[in-house]
Nucleic acid binder design. Structure first.
Lengths: 238, 238
DNA sequence: CGGCGGGTTGATCACTGTCAAGACCGGTGG
DNA sequence: CCACCGGTCTTGACAGTGATCAACCCGCCG
C-alpha cells in the first residue's frame, strides 16, 4: 500500500457503531483505519466491481445506494439486491474467490473499501470482530431469505407491496414507523429485481394507490396504511 | 450437560472433512466432539425446530433431507430451502436469537446438533474455525442468491429447469457430471419453494421430458441433455 | 426545437392458477 | 389374494393475470 490517501478515519464516522469497527476495541481502532479506503466516491452507473473477476474487497455503503446484478450467458441481467447506507457488499463472493455478481451505484454515493485479507487477519486477532462477522452474515442471510419470500409471492401487486414493506423496514431501522420512502432505483431495476415487467410495476403501483395504502410522487412513496399494505402483501389473490 | 449419549464422535464421521470439525486441529477434535449431539434420528415430518422460538442450535444434515418453511400471519406456508447431506441448518437465525423459520425432515434422516454458545467459544479460540465459519456463511449466501435468481425466472418450465440444475449441482458436488437425481421432496414442497402451483410443476415436468432434456420415473430424474436444460432455464419465453 | 430515457396507460394474447376428474401407488383389512 | 382407501401425482377445461407491443407523456439535454 504505497501512498493510500485516508480522507477520514473510522473513529469519526457516523456509521461506526453499526459498521465493522464496532467489532474492535476503541483503543485498537487505528488498526482498522489502516486497512480501509474510506469515502470513495461513485456517480450513478459507476461500477464497484464486475462479475467474474477476482474477489478481493468488501464495500460498506456510507451514503447513496448500490445494486448488485447477475448476468447470465445470454446477456439477461437480473438485479439481485439493493444496498443502502450501512449495508455491506461483497459478502457472498468471499468463499469462492470470484465475484458472483456486479455492483453498480444507482445514486451518487460514498463507499468504504476493505480488503478481505487484512480483515481476516484482524478477525483472527480480535474475537469480538469474529462474533460481529457471524452476526453480519447471519443478518445478510435473513435479508436474502426475506427477498426470497417476496419473490415467491404470486400476484404482482402483492409482491410490490411486500417489497415496499421490506424496503421501508431497512431504510427506517432506526425510526421504524417513518412512512416516507425514497425508492432510489429505476422502475427497470425494480422490475428486474421482482421478476416482473416494468409495465406491471407501474400498474401495481396504481393498484396500491387506488386501494388507499400509499401515495406516490415520482420515486417518493408515502405509506398511508401500513397494515393494509401488509394485508395486500399476503392476500394470495389481489 | 448431565448424561449426554454420544453415539459416534466426529473423528470417525465421513462428513468430517466438509463439516465444522475441519476448522479445528485434529489434536483438538475432542473439544468439538464434546459440544455435538451426533446422529439424532428423524422420521419424515419430524420437526427440527419451530418458527419463532428461541434459536439455540445449528444442525448438520448427515443423511436424509430437510426443508425449512416460513408461515406468515395468514397461515400460508412457503418452503424456503432444502438441506441435504453436509448442509447446515439454522445459520440465518443466529443473529436475531429467534428462529425465522421451521425445519422439517422430508425423509428419514440423521442430523447432528451443535449449540451456538459453546461453538462461539470454540470459534473465539481457534482462528481456523472462524475462517471456516466465514467460508460457510459466504457459501450459504451464494446458495440463497442462486435460489433468488431461480425465483426471478418468469416461465414455469424455465424455473423448474433452473431448480433441477442447481439441485443437481448440490447433490453431485463431488462427482459433478453425474446425471441421476433423486428429488427428495414432494411436488407440493417443490411448488411452494418455486412459487408455482402443483399442477404447473407437473406440466412443466412433461414439457421438459417432451423437449428431450430429462427422463423421469416418480421422484427419480435423469438429466439427458444438460446444456439443453440450461438453455431452457435461460430462455425467457419457453 | 428534436431526440432520448424513464415512466405510464391501453389492447391483445399466452401462460398459469384454479377447479375437477382421473391415474397411480402403498397400506390396511377382509 | 383382492377390494378398499388415502395420499400423491397427472391431465383436462376454463378464467384471470401479466408479458408483450404500441402509443403517449414528461423532464432533460444537446
Amino acid at each position: 500500500m504505497p501512498d493510500k490517501k485516508i480522507t477520514a478515519d473510522c473513529s469519526s464516522c457516523t456509521l461506526a457503531k453499526r459498521c465493522l469497527p464496532s467489532g474492535i476495541p476503541v483503543t485498537d481502532l487505528y488498526r482498522f483505519t489502516n486497512i480501509v479506503s474510506t469515502n470513495q466516491t461513485f456517480s450513478t452507473g459507476d461500477v464497484l466491481f464486475k462479475q467474474g473477476v477476482k474477489a478481493a474487497n468488501l464495500y460498506v455503503v456510507k451514503t447513496g445506494a448500490f445494486k448488485t446484478q447477475i448476468i447470465n450467458q445470454f446477456g439477461d441481467a437480473h438485479v439481485s439486491g439493493f444496498y443502502l447506507s450501512g449495508d455491506i457488499i461483497g459478502l457472498e463472493s468471499m468463499a469462492g474467490g470470484v465475484t458472483l455478481n456486479s455492483s453498480i451505484a444507482i445514486e451518487p454515493s460514498l463507499a468504504c473499501k476493505i480488503s478481505y485479507r487484512p480483515l481476516a487477519l484482524l478477525r483472527r486477532e480480535f474475537p469480538s470482530l469474529s462474533d460481529l462477522a457471524v452476526k453480519i452474515y447471519s443478518q445478510a442471510l435473513a435479508t436474502t431469505q426475506d427477498t426470497q419470500n417476496c419473490l415467491s409471492i404470486h400476484s404482482a401487486p402483492s409482491r410490490l407491496a411486500q417489497f415496499l414493506i421490506l424496503f421501508s423496514q431497512r431504510t427506517n431501522q432506526l425510526s421504524y414507523q417513518q412512512s416516507d420512502l425514497h425508492l432510489n432505483m429505476s422502475r427497470q431495476d425494480m422490475a428486474s429485481h421482482l421478476g416482473i415487467a416494468v409495465e406491471t410495476v407501474s400498474r401495481s403501483f396504481t393498484k396500491l394507490i387506488d386501494s388507499g395504502c400509499i401515495t406516490k410522487t415520482g420515486r417518493l412513496i408515502q405509506i398511508i396504511d401500513r397494515t393494509g399494505l401488509e394485508k395486500i402483501a399476503q392476500c394470495s389473490s389481489y
